[in-house]
Design a protein around this nucleic acid. Structure first.
Length: 1018
RNA sequence: GCGGAUGUGGCGUAAUGGCAGCCGCGCCAGACUUAGGAUCUGGUGCCGCAAGGCGUGGGGGUUCGAGUCCCUUCAUCCGCACCA
């Protein structure tokens, strides 16, 4: 059958079979699943109680962004796992909160709005409706009454409210928590900021009288240095194509995570959140969390704590002319103060504030040129050629604080302005970056640590913290670790600097110059930012005529007509970033409709935090860090009782797509004729003629020809036939233009839905796109067109998205649920493939047959036999263990084993089949409800009781010992379980078989593990 | 460079330090027959006719016994990355 025929008969054959099934009264999943989904919705089966005597359990999924592509098979993987767990916990007697919602603000809907003019709200609503429909069909046990949408004004009212709390708070380092800003103002009024220890920008010291004399604007500016939500001039990641700034974790390899557009560094006035205040707590609290090590490690890296010391290098006055620099110094941050006697230069970041002042006139030109160069080098370039060492000498020197020698000051872009002090002391012999820099510019390297191993300093630096100090004055002879301690003491004694901790984590930029996000509830009165009061919330997203920046480059919100606070003051035009709404949503589920507060005290006290959180690992440094930050903040203010959002976190693996490719011949011209209108016309004709119909070459064919997919070598006769056909028509132009035509293969994604087992449905392909309607296929010898395939991330642009809908339609939701779990361990990533789904589908029918005889339900009330009970109880034990260990894949095989065994026993006993239905219920809820109901239960199976394993049934009276010699099993021998170790040994040694394997030799040793194994060592 | 994860049949995978490959797909052989892509039975790690041997990325170690623990090495994937 050709692929075209297959496609034509595909649908009818399915329909036939389903009709047959109905006639034969086989399990009709369509009817059953639809009926129970309706029942659950109607009876609000999964509605969570607010006041319950049951213990609580909160199972949460990372809610989706409702994209236009709909749900793909990767989404439900985590949802199915959490749903199984939620249903299991209900059967175990818990009051389960298992909600779902939508992270519905975000860029794609807005990009779509820019292209089409459709309001993002409409796009979002449509997408949500589609998601909901898809979710409903899979049979999840969500309490939909608690649905949240971050773009709903009733929801973002509270996102804005939390922002206001952040604005009205500061971080008191003395008690290590956030406090109301009023306590800070009171302190300022009383004694200025001298005694304050706060997470803040560097601020000048002022007294209470200074404060009282400040203008309103001055006070506002000072307070902004302390507030947890603050406005400041910051270097931001500016993405011109998206027209907005991006957070660090939204930038991957120098381009935007969404869309892949270039990102540049730019100084802008921006709202930020002072997450750095929480850096230490975010780090230390990780230890107590039951999260995967990889996520914790990613967060640790991202926070990037490093302990070291600051050290001041006085600027040598004779080397500079600038009077401002008398008594000035350069402060560096180092984690290796022990290497201070090996300093051969000091390097400043190009943006360092002292650069301009201390550069000597002789070096000014070179320095200016370098700074311009460094500025214009985009982030991406900088990352692309990390190896390229650049820098320049300033002409100035500092005085070494211990030796008094002069040390040159250099500028280099390997030093980052944003980290530490933006200046480093360079110790080339013991730091690989300094080494590379020194090597490049021919600067001396002073060895001051003797490595414990042979080391060639001509080759590379020695960075390890092992070895003895030399040439280091008072540190000579000390081990590195002792030297670090000692030198810090000396540095602090002499007032040269002090021990200091640095974090890599930056404050989170909170403004986005976009439309589709929460408006920041701020207005400006005489240039002073002020927040709205609670009763003015929500600040609704205004309507705009276009979703683009204004002509003057202001964000889209500036387009809103008459959008002024009290008709007078300008609002903030940036909106909040995508992660704002998701940073607290778990709390809203606890009390989703409260219009007095974000969630009532009773609700947050009862539900506490999430017991089980399931979602993708890609949120390791974004969402999961911000949600922890906001939780800690709300906890500091006493608004919630917990400081962490989720006790346990599981990351489901990514389901990758398997992309299919076609290989299209394209033509490249190389001509050397003059450019003229006439020649242009000829070229156009040439191009059109050659591309009159697309030539699509099958994978193996193109591989044989080219052994790669680049250039076509011109040796395939069939291809040449088509090529020459096109070519003849334009031979005149080719000659006249004197062009050389090269044919290349272009590898293009093709929709996986028209490819079956790598065989392209060529008819479907022709109608897939207008441009392919006349496609010519160069196929394999058997007439099939074979596509290339590759495993990639599932995405619309790669045409490899597989939606769950088709499987639900053809095999049923229970089958999808079981199959997704059957694929392998939850946390493992794997490419999507349906090759094994028939096994699961067969299993479901086999399960059904166990309860039926032909068309009729066939259940016996006879007591079950011992083997039947053993099968059941072994399964109960395994399933309970598996669920607790999140090992859902192994449960599915246990079910299969169980049903296989019971089928073999021809078991139809209620005593076995009723508990089995309950065991199945979390995994395959529809069929379980149906069987439960047919067994005569009138209530939903949801609140049945999970069966308890009776170990008595698992114990056999005898054990079949594997008898091994030198660890290799040779035969088996059955003994009574009560037979002692000693007796087993005696019996085994007397066996003829044993004697055979002993070959007359005496055993050196005999190991008997009771009821496990016998091993005889010869 | 740093960190995390993963390497087991043709494929997805399974194995509290104790019979490697459960379960499923695929494949082979057969049965049944309203010829269905249904259902049922048997087989299927590799080499070998067999006896038997070899097998969990490679090398070493601990152990009576290692897929599992330790050391080392290689490969693949992911995250971070001039972080002083």
């Amino acid at each position: 059958m050709t692929s075209a025929n297959r496609a034509m008969f595909f649908v009818p054959s399915w329909t036939n079979r389903i009709q047959k099934r109905i006639v034969k009264m086989e399990y009709n999943f369509r009817e059953v699943e639809k009926r129970w989904q309706a029942y659950w919705a109607e009876n609000k089966t999964f509605k969570t109680e607010d006041n319950s005597s049951k213990p609580k359990y909160f199972v949460l999924d990372m809610f989706p962004y409702p994209s236009g592509a709909g749900l793909h098979v990767g989404h439900p993987l985590g949802y199915i796992a959490s749903d199984i767990f939620a249903r299991y916990k209900r059967l175990k007697g818990f009051n389960v909160l298992h909600p779902m919602g939508y992270d519905s603000f975000g860029l794609p809907a807005e990009q779509y709005a820019i292209q089409t003019g459709q309001h993002p709200r409409i796009t979002t609503e449509n997408n949500i409706a589609r998601y909901r429909d898809q979710l409903d069909k899979i049979g999840f046990s969500f309490d939909w009454d608690r649905e949240v949408r971050t773009s709903d004004p009733q929801y973002y009212k509270w996102t804005q409210w939390i922002f206001i709390q952040l604005f009205n708070s500061w971080y008191n380092k003395k008690c290590n928590k956030a406090e109301k800003i009023e306590t800070l103002i009171a302190e300022f009024e009383k004694s200025g900021n001298g005694n304050i220890s706060a997470a803040c920008e560097v601020t000048e010291v002022f007294s209470s009288s200074d404060w009282n004399a400040f203008s309103e604007k001055d006070r506002s500016d000072v307070l902004l240095n302390y507030r947890l939500a603050f406005l400041s001039n910051t270097m931001v990641n500016w993405c011109p194509q998206l027209g907005t700034v991006l957070a660090n974790e939204e930038v991957k390899e120098g381009v935007s995570e969404r869309g892949g557009y270039p990102v540049e560094r730019k100084l802008m006035k921006q709202w930020s959140l002072r997450i750095t205040a929480y850096a230490d707590r975010l780090l230390t609290d990780l230890d107590a969390l039951d999260w995967t090590e990889s996520i914790k490690e990613a967060q640790r890296n991202w926070i990037g704590k490093s302990e070291g010391t600051s050290l001041k290098f006085k600027i040598q006055e004779s080397s500079i002319k600038n009077q401002d620099l008398i008594d000035a110094y350069i402060e560096v941050f180092t984690t290796r103060p022990d290497t201070v006697f090996g300093v051969s230069f000091v390097t400043l970041a190009p943006e360092h504030e002292l650069v301009e002042k201390l550069t000597t006139p002789e070096q000014k030109k070179a320095v200016d040129e370098y700074i311009t160069f460094a500025k214009n080098r985009s982030e991406r370039e900088r990352m692309a050629d990390v190896k390229k060492i650049t820098g320049v000498f300033t002409g100035a020197y500092v005085i070494h604080p211990f030796t008094g020698k002069q040390v040159p000051i250099w500028i280099g872009d390997y030093v980052l302005a944003g980290y530490g002090t933006g200046a480093v002391m360079a110790v080339p012999a013991h730091d690989s970056r300094d080494y590379a820099f020194a090597d490049h510019f021919g600067i001396d390297k002073q060895v001051i640590i003797l490595p414990p191993v042979d080391w060639d300093f001509a080759d590379k630096s020695y960075d390890e913290k092992e070895g003895k100090l030399v040439n280091s004055d008072f540190l000579n002879g000390l081990e590195v670790k002792a030297a670090i301690k000692k030198v810090i003491t000396v540095i602090e004694e002499r007032g040269l600097g002090k021990g200091k901790t640095n974090f890599r984590l930056r404050d989170a930029i909170f403004g986005r110059q976009r439309y589709w996000g929460e408006p920041i509830p701020v207005y400006y009165e005489n240039g002073i930012p002020k927040v709205l009061s609670e009763n003015e919330l929500p600040l609704l997203l205004p309507e705009v005529d276009k979703y683009l920046p204004t002509e003057t480059g202001e964000p889209p919100l500036a387009r809103a007509k008459d959008w002024k606070y009290k008709g007078e003051f300008e609002y903030e035009y940036s909106t909040m970033p995508g992660w704002a709404g998701s940073s607290w949503y778990f709390l809203r589920y606890m009390d989703a409709h409260n219009d007095k507060t974000f969630a009532s005290k009773e609700a947050v006290d009862y539900w506490q935090n999430v017991d089980l959180y399931i979602g993708g690992a890609e949120h390791a440094t974004g969402h999961l860090l911000y949600i922890r930050f906001w939780t800690k903040f709300l906890n500091d203010l006493g608004l919630i009782p917990v400081a962490e959002p989720a006790k346990k976190l599981i990351n489901q693996g990514m389901i990758q797509g398997v992309s299919s490719f076609i290989y299209k011949l394209i033509f490249v011209f190389e001509g050397n004729s003059e450019r003229s209108d006439e020649n242009e016309a000829k070229s156009t004709k040439l191009r059109e003629a050659l591309n009159e119909f697309p030539i699509i070459v099958s994978k193996k064919r193109s591989e044989i020809i080219t052994n790669g997919f680049d250039e076509y070598d011109g040796t395939d006769e069939e291809i040449n036939k088509y090529l020459s056909k096109s070519r003849i028509k334009v031979q005149k132009e080719i000659d006249e233009l004197n062009v050389k035509i090269t044919s290349m293969f272009s590898k293009l994604h093709v929709d996986v839905n028209i490819v079956n087992n790598n065989v392209l449905d060529t008819e479907a392909f022709k109608s897939w796109r207008e441009e392919y309607k006349d496609a010519i296929f160069i196929t394999e010898e058997n007439g099939d067109y074979i596509c290339g395939s590759e495993v990639e991330k599932m995405s619309k642009s790669k045409w490899n998205v597989v939606s769950p809908d088709k499987i639900v339609e053809e095999q049923g939701a229970d089958c999808l649920r079981l199959y997704e779990m059957f694929l392998g361990p939850l946390e493992q990533s794997k490419p999507w493939s349906t090759s094994g789904i028939s096994g699961v589908s067969n299993f479901i029918r086999k399960l059904w047959r166990l309860y039926h005889n032909g068309d009729e339900l066939n259940i016996s009330n006879e007591p079950a036999t011992r083997p039947e009970l053993k099968t059941l109880h072994k399964t109960i034990k395994k399933i309970a263990q598996d669920i607790e260990n999140f090992s859902f894949n192994t449960s599915v095989s246990s079910f299969m084993i169980c049903v296989n065994e019971l089928t073999e026993f021809k078991c139809n006993k209620r005593e076995v089949l009723e508990p089995l239905a309950i065991l199945m219920a979390p995994y395959a809820p529809h069929i379980a409800e149906e069987l439960w109901n047919k067994l005569g239960n009138s209530e939903s199976i949801t609140y049945a009781t999970f069966p308890i394993c009776n170990e008595d049934y698992l114990v056999e009276s005898s054990f079949n010992y594997p008898i091994s010699f030198n660890g290799k099993t040779r035969f088996f021998q059955e003994y009574d379980r009560s037979l002692s170790k000693e007796d087993v040994e005696k019996e085994v040694l007397n066996l003829d078989q044993t004697q055979k394997y002993l070959e007359g030799k005496a055993p050196k040793k005999v190991i008997v593990v009771h009821n496990k194994i016998v091993n005889i060592v010869i």
